[in-house]
Design a protein around this nucleic acid. Structure first.
Length: 304
RNA sequence: GGGGGUGUGGUGGAGUGGUCAAUCACAACAGACUGUAAAUCUGUCGGCCUUUGGCCUUCGUAGGUUCGAAUCCUACCGCCCCCA
């Protein structure tokens, strides 16, 4: 853990684990600022459905990368990486501790493990064209153009196949292999809870969101120009509430399906982190505080 | 009391004589992930084994018909509907 890299605290964890609250506590304790690593909280107007921290909570600790994009436009890992790096530099320069907090594992890893993403921007036209092809056809093309990538890719996954084709067709050269080292001194916390407890929290929170005006929020987004298709692609509350608003399902069916989907999502998040040996998992607030104390001493002795 | 219907794996629900351990969906479990990542995608899912195959036990219960039954017959039990 002793190196010259600047320290970064990460608070990751599945949805409804309580990581936002913990991050705020840690920020207050260690003079930190929070960088949200959440692929849906970057969008303006998506508040209730994403569980975005309130303005009042934002006063307790400064938050970065909330509300930085229009829901009508595409925000992506690459932009996140660039924006977050800028935020980290800004925070560090002022002698404060950057705290990455979020549930989007892919984004956190892209930022924190110094992966270089291929310099190929999404090409809407090309994607639209490729979308018409079946997975088998896409795979056949990729095998022809970039056999190495084809060998490693999930041949059934159109999203992956299309991006891989986009890269090879634009650059003509294969994607470099991933290396897993970090330019930062990582203090990687994971907030976990027993599955039963997590499910209860998810359900309770879902009902609170419905009561708090989640349906109106989605209606507003659509009125402001976010297409049904777009809302569908946001997943979870935005997907299911949009279906309800279009009248394809009842309110009860919406709630049931949504609950299942959120739970499945939490499991997928856990799968992402499970294999990551850098993470120190905390299961309770007390445990988090203990770890925080350790971090405090470490941070004081070798980081600054 | 009379008539009709129905009972399938954790759930819903197919299957109506052989190719059925039983379509499918959901749940459950496991996994992938390089600019859509709350998205997208994969595998397992009765039990056991020497696991591209073999064996065993399952389709309300008990018998029966048949070379062979989740599928046909009889009785019983449960549930539903109609008539009384």
């Amino acid at each position: 853990m002793k190196d010259n890299h600047s320290p970064i605290l990460i608070v990751a964890g599945p949805t409804a684990s309580g990581k936002s609250d913990l991050a705020i506590q840690l920020a207050r304790r260690f003079n930190g600022e929070i960088i949200s690593a959440d692929s849906r909280q970057v969008y303006r107007g998506m508040d209730i459905g994403t569980g975005k921290v309130t303005k009042r909570e934002q006063k307790l600790a400064r938050h970065w990368l909330l509300d930085v994009a229009s829901p009508k436009r595409q925000y992506s890992v690459a932009r996140f990486k660039r924006d977050a790096e800028r935020a980290i530099r800004n925070i560090t320069r002022r002698g404060k501790l950057p705290i990455i907090c979020g549930g989007t594992g892919f984004w956190i890893d892209a930022l924190v493990y110094g992966q270089s993403l291929p310099e190929v921007k999404p090409d809407g036209k090309l994607r639209a064209k490729l979308q018409k092809l079946s997975a088998a056809e896409l795979f056949a093309r990729l095998s022809h153009l970039d056999p190495a990538r084809a060998a490693a890719i999930d041949r059934h996954n159109p999203v992956r196949l299309i991006r891989a084709l986009e890269i090879i067709m634009t650059t003509g050269k294969p994607v470099p292999a991933v290396h897993r080292s970090s330019p930062y001194h990582l203090l990687y916390l994971g907030v976990s809870r027993p599955m039963g407890e997590l499910k209860r929290r998810i359900e309770k929170r879902l009902d609170a969101r419905l009561k708090a005006g989640m349906i109106a929020e989605v209606r507003r987004l659509h009125a402001m120009g976010a297409s049904w298709k777009r809302l569908e692609s946001f997943g979870l509350e935005y997907r299911w509430v949009a279906r309800f608003l279009r009248g394809t399902i009842t309110r009860n069916a919406m709630r049931d399906a949504l609950l299942k989907d959120i739970i499945a999502y939490a499991k997928r998040q856990l799968t992402w982190w499970r294999k990551n040996g850098d993470i120190a998992w905390v299961a309770s607030t007390t445990q988090a505080k203990t770890i925080a104390r350790q971090i405090a001493s470490e941070y004081a002795t070798d980081a600054l």
